[in-house]
Each structure stands twice: as structure tokens, then as C-alpha cells.
């Protein structure tokens, strides 16, 4: 039990996160690399996340509609769909898509850098590869996932508006009002805060798996795969935690 690989991995990841906080906020700062990672991990995931968010918003609205009509609660569709998207669906969809796309790419990239000694090469070039590769990526996912989430939320709501208007009509003002009437700061902030943690977890797991990859090219595939699996699971665990914490804080 005490020498299980799972616990060892948890411990290793915790140390890794500790190293991130220890080294990440000391100069020198890799601004250029951070920006370029933000571009790659954030902007280039926008299409994927945006399309997914849009489709989920539309599908959710269309699926919900018959039931709501049955209950005579058609006017509640915007509220229900809106709150679902803002509070739960957009964060989860964004985090899962980013875990799939970015988690695997970080895992594969760092592990291939590791097995081809490029990480060592950076180190002997007098560059701290942890700062240059890991801190920038972890920061990039931590910063970009909330922004991706916000854009996915926006697109999801736009899709929901479209879905509501496909059958029956609701003005944009009423749609907005219906959602805003039930939306509190707590909803929005807990969604944003939780995506910050999602982003951090995705970056942490991807980097950890890639940074300590071994066994040559086989290790690259394994790192990418386990990064995705673990990051996705971590997203759900964090989501569960987020529900509990926001309940405790009275944000729900």
C-alpha cells in the first residue's frame, strides 16, 4: 500500500506542483515562451472548444424543449439551459476538450523533448527547462482554460438562443433577462475559479507525465495517453470538489 505506484505518482505530482510555485514566480520570467504557449494552447484550441460548446448548447436546448413543453415550462428553457451552460457544461466541456487536445500535446511534446535529450540540452545551455517548458505551459493552461471557458460559454449561450428561436420565439432581451434573473456572482465566479483549477490540473498532469517520461519513443505515447486519461479524471474530481466547496461557501 505504502509503496504503490499510484501514491508515488500523487506524491511526485505534488512535489512537481510545489516546484512550479517555487520556481515559477522567481526571475527570470519566460515571457516570450509564455505568450507563444498561450497562443498555441489557448488560441489554437478555440475552434475545437468553441464548436463543441456551440453544439452542446444547441443540442441541450433542443433536447430539453419537449420535456419542458410537456410541463408547460417553456419559458423556463432559457433559464435552465443558461444556468446549465454557465455553471457546469461549458467548464466541463472546455476542460475535457483541452485535456484531450492540450494535455496530450504537452505530454507528447515534453516527453519527446525528454527522450531526445532536448531538455538536457536546454539545461546545459544554461536554461532552466523547468521554467522554460513546464512553468510556461502550466501558466498558459491555467490562464487560457478560463478564457476558453468564457468563450465556450458565450458560444453555448448563443447556440441556446438559436435553439430557443428555432421553435417559438424569444427576444434577445428576454433571453438575457431570463438568464440574468437567476444568475448570481457566485455562479459565474465559481465557474471561472473552477476552470482555473481545471487548467492548472491539465497543465500539471501533462507536464509531469511528459517531463519524467522514460523508455524512448514508447514512453512518448504512454506519456501522452496517460496525461489525457489522468487529466480528464482529475477534471471530474475537481468538479466534484468544486460543487462541495461552493456549497460550503454558499455560492450555489
Amino acid at each position: 500500500m505504502f509503496n504503490s505506484p499510484f501514491l508515488a505518482e500523487i506524491g511526485g505530482m505534488t512535489r512537481f506542483a510545489g516546484r512550479f510555485f517555487r520556481e515559477g514566480f522567481r526571475p527570470r520570467y519566460e515571457w516570450r515562451e509564455l505568450l507563444s504557449q498561450c497562443y498555441v494552447l489557448g488560441y489554437q484550441s478555440l475552434t475545437l472548444v468553441g464548436v463543441t460548446g456551440f453544439i452542446m448548447g444547441l443540442v441541450l436546448t433542443l433536447r430539453l424543449r419537449p420535456t419542458m413543453v410537456q410541463f408547460g415550462a417553456e419559458s423556463w428553457i432559457p433559464t435552465m439551459v443558461g444556468l446549465t451552460i454557465i455553471r457546469e457544461m461549458a467548464p466541463i466541456i472546455t476542460a475535457l476538450m483541452v485535456a484531450g487536445k492540450v494535455g496530450s500535446s504537452i505530454g507528447a511534446e515534453l516527453s519527446s523533448l525528454r527522450v531526445t535529450e532536448q531538455i538536457d540540452a536546454m539545461e546545459v545551455s544554461g536554461t532552466n527547462p523547468f521554467k522554460y517548458l513546464v512553468v510556461t505551459r502550466m501558466l498558459a493552461t491555467t490562464l487560457m482554460v478560463p478564457i476558453l471557458n468564457l468563450l465556450a460559454t458565450g458560444l453555448g449561450l448563443a447556440a441556446a438562443y438559436l435553439g430557443v428561436n428555432l421553435k417559438g420565439g424569444t427576444s434577445l432581451a428576454l433571453f438575457t433577462h431570463n438568464i440574468l434573473a437567476r444568475l448570481t456572482f457566485g455562479d459565474l465566479l465559481s465557474a471561472v475559479v473552477k476552470t482555473v483549477f481545471f487548467g492548472f490540473a491539465i497543465g500539471l498532469i501533462g507536464c509531469y507525465k511528459g517531463y519524467y517520461a522514460t523508455n524512448g519513443t514508447e514512453g512518448v505515447g504512454r506519456a501522452a495517453n496517460s496525461a489525457v486519461v489522468m487529466a480528464s479524471m482529475m477534471v471530474f474530481i475537481l468538479d466534484l470538489l468544486a460543487v462541495q466547496v461552493s456549497n460550503l461557501l454558499g455560492l450555489n
Binding site: 519527446s112 531526445t116 535529450e117 532536448q118 538536457d120 540540452a121 546545459v124
Partner: peptide, 10 residues
């Protein structure tokens, strides 16, 4: 340091 695998940044 010249690496066996060159370790050029691909």
C-alpha cells in the same frame, strides 16, 4: 555539451 542524439530543438 554535444549530445549523442544532437538534441537539436526540432
Amino acid at each position: 555539451f554535444l549530445f549523442q542524439s544532437n538534441a537539436l530543438y526540432d
